[in-house]
Amino acid sequence: MQKRILITGAAGFLGSHLCDKFISEGYYVIAMDNLITGDLKNIEHLFKLENFEFYNHDVTKFVHIPGKLDYILHFASPASPIDYLKIPIQTLKVGSLGTHNLLGLAKEKKATILIASTSEVYGDPLVHPQSEEYYGNVNTIGPRGVYDEAKRFQESITMAYHRFHGLDTRIVRIFNTYGPRMRLNDGRVIPAFIGQALRGEDLTIFGKGLQTRSFCYITDQVEGIYKLLLSNYSLPVNIGNPDEITIRDFAEEIIKLTGTQQKIVYQDLPENDPLQRQPDISLAKKLLNWSPKVPREEGMKKTFEYFKSLSKEELFKKEHKDFSKHIIK
């Protein structure tokens, strides 16, 4: 019998690629998104399929899905600083109320649920690289705390449901991921740099550019998530690419890739911006036989081609999402 899976945040960058993956694996995919930060164009190619349906719904409200469910992937959450700083309360609600609703749905349906956590649970780490055993260094009341703590709470309540109710759960800690369908002006490093290069603007670096990141291409990330879901491991697992690079060196790579002549300009480092970010993926290698396959040079070429294909209107428009109806005053 065909397996049925609910994917929340399905119209987002990661969620839409997960929809593609599970469709290709023969699943019946139920996509859910309230389109605060997602975009229907990311999944519009799936609407004609018989084994795909879409619900425009906010998971912080009661979630009902008729029929059986085998799996739930909870990927509904703002993920970029621009978004979660504009809608901090909604970010906290989707991590708490939304997760609670979906855990309850998984319990009712006897479904396996995978929760999308993040490397941000490690905060500005004092341990490098970051393994799953590290508890993190997070400022709970800083600007980034609304995202970091939402994800840390997600992990806590998920493990509580696993231990108390015997729910079959998975937790993936996602490190920086990139590829086609990223939003151009969402504030993350790769679309920000490529967008500036394509518009002929100087590339903006915060601080001295010595902070590091490790970038994982979308197909590798999706494969790691897929393998984790089908495993029987309930504790958190890092999925990311350990190939670490400084932001300054990465900016130089972007200038070379795009063939532009922009300068690099420097601005003050945001509060609590992590100075190092590199996953220890020993557990994923051992448990899932997973490691990233796509080198950064190859992945960045594909990503650059995607952004080059955007219209001039898309390239030059500013982020215009209307968050007003989601803001609780």
Results as ranks from 00 to 15, higher is better:
T140W: 08
G38N: 05
D83P: 02
N185F: 13
A11S: 14
N137M: 13
K286D: 08
L203D: 03
V127Y: 10
L198Q: 07
T118S: 15
T99P: 13
P81I: 06
F250S: 00
S117R: 07
P236T: 03
I218Q: 12
F304K: 06
E108K: 15
L257K: 00
T37L: 14
G207R: 01
S282M: 06
K285L: 05
P295Q: 10
A116C: 04
L167Y: 04
S96A: 09
D148T: 07
D322E: 08
M182Y: 09
A11G: 14
K151C: 01
A11M: 00
V146W: 11
K302G: 02
A197T: 04
Y55H: 15
Q276D: 13
S119N: 13
A76T: 14
E149M: 13
V222W: 12
I5E: 12
T60M: 07
P125D: 06
L35C: 12
F316G: 04
I36M: 11
S117C: 09
K318N: 12
G104L: 03
E223W: 15
L35N: 13
L105C: 08
Y147I: 10
Q221E: 09
S16F: 15
G299E: 06
N51T: 08
G67E: 11
A111L: 14
I264E: 06
K151A: 05
I174N: 08
R188N: 12
R181A: 06
L229A: 03
V29D: 01
Q262F: 03
I254E: 01
I239S: 12
F215C: 02
K321P: 04
N101Q: 06
K48N: 12
G145E: 02
S309D: 11
M159H: 06
S234M: 08
H45P: 11
N241F: 12
D124M: 06
L46Q: 10
L235V: 00
I245F: 11
L310F: 01
I245N: 02
T8A: 10
L85V: 00
L257E: 10
Q130F: 03
Y217P: 04
R170P: 02
E298P: 04
Q154M: 11
S282R: 02
K93V: 04
R173N: 03
E314G: 05
A79Y: 13
D280V: 01
K263W: 00
R4E: 01
E271K: 14
F62H: 07
Y217V: 14
H165P: 00
R152D: 00
E133V: 04
Q154S: 12
E108N: 14
T169K: 04
L18D: 08
E149C: 15
R296N: 15
T212C: 07
E297F: 01
L283Y: 05
S80H: 13
F153Q: 00
Q278L: 09
Y178I: 04
D186M: 11
I264G: 15
I194H: 02
T91N: 00
L235G: 08
K301D: 09
C216W: 03
